[in-house]
Amino acid sequence: MKINSSKVAELAGVSRSTVSRVINNYSNVPEETKEKIMKVIKELGYIPNTNAQVLAGKTNKTIGLFVYGDNSEKRNILDSGLTFGYYLDLINRVLKESLKLEHQLLVDVVNDDSYSKIDSLFINRNIVGAIFIGFKGEDEKLEKLIQKGYLSVLVDYTLNPKVEAENIFYINTEDYEGAKLATDHLIELGKKNIIHISGNTEKLSSKERERGYLEAMNSAQLKPLIYNGNYNQLLAYDEINRILEEKVEFDAVFSANDNMSYGVLKALKEKNIIDIPIVGFDNLRNTIPLGIMSIAPDINKLAKEAVQSLIFQEKEKEKMKFIKTKLIKDLNEYLKESYLEECSL
């Protein structure tokens, strides 16, 4: 007879995910259920399928970091430091923080067909917890996975209120505040026709950044001008060219991320337009030297919070955390910010 977690679940009269939670020592299982499962495990002599370290009695110290990308995006995320610089920067910082706390990091770009693979990593105790980045809002497969009680950190995501889940931490940047700060700054420069190039409308960050832009424009009694770039440099480039062809009047641009700002700048330069201020979001390395202002989230802080929430979960009380942002206007501010950041690493 093949002995596995499914057999344990069958004999104990529970689901496979409940067996997994008991094996992983999660607290959200009734004591009576836990005792019943442990009795079956002992009777069968079942040993969970896990890595050699765990079988040897050592604690598993691997964190999973999963970035969402459909098949067309997957190669770009892995290969292009320019296009997906935000993800690569965050992954690098999460890796540094994990190593500092003597944990390994497993990184993968996942799509709609990958959820069973993540489920298996949890069930087999290959990872102690997971950080999910870039997933679209109300992702049913992700939320079904989260409902199993796996220890997780969700970045740029909020669960559907109807979904009941434990062992979840939320870490988001102050997208609304940052977008309002960017737009207010352009208004203070005397700009009245400010275009907003919005991001992926299915993602929380894009919705919040658009909300911040609208609040600033409405407060100043200015007409919003919103065009979608889907967080994509080429689409933003095409949108600006279309706007120019249609002779839409504008005197500034707030882009929902730096990646799209590069497309905006390229389109304007090709038309010899050099007097339009641009503010992006993310403070990627190339942005400020190109003359683009940017909203800078504290990515180092985000990485620390994500990793430490998983490792020290018993001490964590605050489930929802927001990472502060600031406006970087010129190269001097950028260099100062970079220096302070390096000192904190």
Rank of each mutant, 00 (worst) to 15 (best):
M1F: 13
A9Q: 10
G13H: 10
T18F: 06
T18R: 02
S20E: 07
N24G: 11
N24K: 15
N24P: 06
Y26C: 09
V29K: 01
P30K: 15
I47K: 11
T50V: 12
A52P: 00
A56V: 06
A56M: 13
T62Q: 10
G69Q: 05
E73I: 03
R75N: 13
V94G: 02
V94L: 12
E102P: 02
V110S: 01
D112R: 01
D112S: 11
K117N: 11
I123H: 09
R125W: 01
G134N: 01
K136G: 08
E138D: 14
E143G: 06
K144F: 07
G149V: 02
Y150K: 08
P161E: 12
K162I: 10
E164W: 05
Y170K: 04
G178M: 00
K180Y: 13
H185Q: 07
I187C: 07
L189P: 06
G190Y: 09
I194P: 00
H196W: 05
H196D: 07
S205F: 11
R209N: 07
L222F: 08
L225W: 07
I226T: 15
L234K: 13
L235Y: 09
E239H: 01
N241S: 08
E246L: 14
A256M: 00
Y262C: 02
L268R: 12
I278D: 02
G280V: 01
P289F: 03
G291W: 10
P297A: 03
K304M: 10
S309W: 10
E314K: 15
K315P: 01
E318F: 09
K319A: 11
M320E: 14
K321H: 08
T325Q: 04
T325F: 04
K336V: 12
E337R: 01
Y339H: 13
